[in-house]
Amino acid sequence: MAAAIAIHSVTKTYHRGGESLRVLDDLELQMEAGTFYALMGPSGSGKTTLLNLVGGLDHADAGRVVVGDTDLTSLDGSELARWRAAHVGFVFQGFNLLPVLTARENVELPLLLAPLSKAQRREQAERALALVGLGDRMDHKPRELSGGQEQRVAIARAIATDPQVILADEPTGDLDRTTADAVLDLLQRLNRELNKTILMVTHDPQAAGFADQVIHLDKGKLGRIDRNERPAGARRV
């Protein structure tokens, strides 16, 4: 299977108050397309930093980050912004929906950057919301939705542009167990039914259980990779 994400000798160091903290240390990692990865490790192990580098939100100090056929380390700020708009979807722990917009308008936001007509944007946003089971909540604002519904809107926003890669940073961190499982189940469906490559940062082993592979980071280095057994009934193609 082709590598969807390739991390080559990546190093990232933060400088704070005269002190340097190396969060990723000569990291070497390959992730396959169409696979659901969970990224685990103790606090400060570099999980979110790696997610930011893969999402083109931050630059590595050294090494290369290649997503699909794009070497992100060669792109400048505005090129990275354009790349993000077309190739990656983000799901955050705090949902990060814009409170003044409705669910549909939130999902339409990334589509504003695509060459689509107003009608096409609306149709695509509605399709994404229907896919996450919120076809009847399109005109609700975030404050009118439950936490689980908000996160599903955020997932709809992440898939609205049909990106190859979905990056999720603790997507269930603010949710109760039942709601969290529903969200994870949704991510799993997106992976299995739409063949999305998903990289999810989590502290929760139960959440990690929904992934195909669990990557463990420790002090900025690759620890081990666990492969989860896929229950036969889990695949819902």
Binding site: W83, R84, L98
Partner: peptide
């Protein structure tokens, strides 16, 4: 600030 960060993450420019 957060909303603007979200917009940038989605691909909107500075």
């Amino acid at each position: 600030t957060r909303d603007l960060g979200v917009l940038k993450a989605l691909g909107f420019t500075d």
